[in-house]
Write a protein that binds this DNA or RNA. Sequence first.
DNA 1: AACCATGATGGAATCGTTTCCATGAAGAGG
DNA 2: CCTCTTCATGGAAACGATTCCATCATGGTT
Lengths: 380, 380
Amino acid sequence: MKRATIKDVAEAAGVGVATVSRVLSGGSASPQTRERVLAVAAQLDYRPSALGRNLRQQRTGGMGLLLPDLTDSFYGQLAEGVLACARSAGEPVVIGSTADDPEQEAELIGMLLEQSVDRLIAVPCGDADTWRPALKAGMTVVFADRLPPEPDPGTPQPDPAGAAPESELEGALSGVSSAALSELMMLDGVGALPGARPAAPRPAVRPLDVPAVLTDDRSGIRTAVQYLRGLGHRRIAYLGGPGRERRVEAFRQAVGGVPDEELIVFSDGSRDSAYAAASGLFQTRPDLTALVAGGNMLGEAAVLAARELDLRVPRDLSVVMYDDVPWAELCSPPLTVIAQPARDMGYRAAELVLRAGSRRPRSVLLPTELVIRGSCGPRL
Amino acid sequence: MKRATIKDVAEAAGVGVATVSRVLSGGSASPQTRERVLAVAAQLDYRPSALGRNLRQQRTGGMGLLLPDLTDSFYGQLAEGVLACARSAGEPVVIGSTADDPEQEAELIGMLLEQSVDRLIAVPCGDADTWRPALKAGMTVVFADRLPPEPDPGTPQPDPAGAAPESELEGALSGVSSAALSELMMLDGVGALPGARPAAPRPAVRPLDVPAVLTDDRSGIRTAVQYLRGLGHRRIAYLGGPGRERRVEAFRQAVGGVPDEELIVFSDGSRDSAYAAASGLFQTRPDLTALVAGGNMLGEAAVLAARELDLRVPRDLSVVMYDDVPWAELCSPPLTVIAQPARDMGYRAAELVLRAGSRRPRSVLLPTELVIRGSCGPRL
DNA sequence: AACCATGATGGAATCGTTTCCATGAAGAGG
DNA sequence: CCTCTTCATGGAAACGATTCCATCATGGTT
């Protein structure tokens, strides 16, 4: 029992294939022809094959979606957002999980290229060189949640060059509706020309010119740090994951002065490594009183490690975690978190990638929210 | 800068396109030709387009994956398993999330059909009628985690007919390696012919003859209930989600006698509904002392509702939850769970769907494990 | 009445691949 | 030396859609 093709419909309706195609894709046709074709198509249960169409138009519909890890519920939510948007557009989504490994990422990009998937949403882990092939092949790429690491910091430009556009952005941010925010161009300080007019509309040249949907890490971290400082904490540690340079940088800035680098530790994407990093941190620096975890898996590890070492939260240790996840409320004490609109991020990214072509998509910066629960207390 | 086609390679290598195709897909060719073609292909950075291939072979490579909700980390893990297997086979995965809504499921199936995706892994929510079109179109379908609801129970056949194959299965289960288990044919009692030879190799006829990767719900639930009974609990409640008839049935069987139906409550897939169901249950039946939650979202809701009502776990209420999720350990007290090998399930399902065609895939039943933590205590 | 504009229509080309089939060469066996 | 087999090889036909282009009819304008 094979599927009916356009030819079958044409024959049954006594018209040419071209006419059928036109009718189905909204071209011009006489009312009676249109009706007859439609009737026959329905009767034969005809569905145009994406295969033929794709080959002819030299592109696969739909979009690719590359995430580090579907087990992480933040990415799960992001994916749900993407899927929701794709569904409403009737487009398929090809998914891949990279485990934060640039090699796997490159492989998956290759696979998508082979499939002629020409639209891609990605939480990137590889650097610009990983992504250039995709762009050169004409893919429309939208990054979500983070950007590829800068290939070469060059002159680090500690603050002044970076601070200018940032503060401008922050100004625009405060008190502005989320909707208006979305039209904002993302201006990242790093890589900006030192002498360039700071207020010029032209964005800073970055190695990769790819639109992105990000959250305002800088402000999220700053809020958290300020909150902790307000509670009297001075030795605040940061536990970071891969591909999160922006957050670390924001943390360094937020604590001000010369940061105590020993209080800033990293892990790769795995649970074990996160646990090891947290546990190591607590043991080498028992004097720390607060911790910012740069991701929900890191937060999980931190809580676990703290419990193992008999550190009571928040009495001995205050914890703020990035990402609001369902279990944050279940934890005891319930975790204070920096919430990101994960689902929205996915949805917006999908919108961006689908809209591309009509107008050049602009980047989107979404706000974060500090959700105060019970895991932070005053320094004793 | 367009991609090189097979024609370009053929011309550059001075051979016909047929030869190039043969070389690339491992057909016969003389060593020198093969080498030349390979060299030219590499030099031109040629990658065969999946579009042309798919059209020609009348099928899209890869597989579809339909899940209720990527936010649920059980399904996240399952998806990771599928992706891992697909990656090692170099196959793309088209994903869709159904929100446990048969209508959306049907829509997604239609979309996959349109894409000529002919292999599908699904956690089904629609009934047999939803799935028949896919099967009739020649799709290879493998169900994971659960089966479509039985269309019509007919004569319920309370125990005897169902018990025979089940106990046989259980016998095979105990003390048998997981590898051997995988070759086991899934025999579900419902629908079995009453008078048929019970030991016959021919499986029970079910409305849909689709291979599946399931966990042994019956034994999982039974273990949990026995554990709770051993702690002295007599009024044990069950909180169930959609598409989980097997677990409820298993629960009814495990508690034995005439079950107190008031202690068995359901919710749909949403968090709110789960919370409402749990809260309602606790308030109408304050005499219950233990609860089995048939899924991690249900467990989450139960813990939350219990806390809200000042029920202390495990002092006032013992809780066993289905699915081991990372946060179960973070909860306080850490949750005792029925762990399912979620990732394995996904991986096995993907294997099954990829292997199909060579040999008819058989269903797989994987064991569960009761992981005892701190959420169950003796009845006081 | 001749001409042009408009619009519906179908034939055929096209996309990139696989695969069938015919051709030709070369080697083996009589 | 002829023939039969084997094998590498390339041309061409699919696959199912879209879309260009030519054709034809119709109706309006000069």
